[in-house]
C-alpha cells in the first residue's frame, strides 16, 4: 500500500511517500502497526487528534476501512489560502 505523509508528519517520519507491506484492515490498525515498528512513526502518530487522514484521496477518519484501498495519506489540518 502506498502511504503519503505531509508537513511535520513527513519531517518526523523522514519521507513523503513509501510502500508499506501490511494487512491492516483499518487506518487505526495501520497506525498501530507502524507505531510498533519504529520510534519515528510513534513520534509522528503520538497525537492523532492533530492528524487528518485521506484514503484514496478522500478525506475520512481513523476508523476507515482499508479494504481495497491503494493509498493512505496522513497530514495535519490544512492551512491554505
Amino acid at each position: 500500500m502506498k502511504v503519503l505523509y505531509f508537513a511535520w508528519l513527513r519531517e518526523r517520519i523522514g519521507t513523503g511517500s513509501e510502500e508499506v507491506e501490511t494487512n491492516a484492515s483499518t487506518v487505526a490498525k495501520l497506525v498501530a502497526e507502524l507505531t510498533s515498528r519504529e520510534d519515528r512513526y510513534a513520534a509522528a502518530f503520538a497525537d492523532m487528534s492533530a492528524v487528518r487522514v485521506a484514503v484514496d484521496q478522500t478525506m475520512t477518519d481513523i476508523d476507515a476501512s482499508l479494504t481495497g484501498a491503494a493509498e493512505v495519506a496522513f497530514f495535519p489540518p490544512m492551512t491554505g489560502g
Partner: peptide, 13 residues
C-alpha cells in the same frame, strides 16, 4: 476563500 483555508491541501511553514 473560506473553503480554501480548510479544504485545500496546503501546509505553511
Amino acid at each position: 476563500m473560506d473553503f480554501l483555508k480548510t479544504r485545500a491541501p496546503f501546509w505553511k511553514k
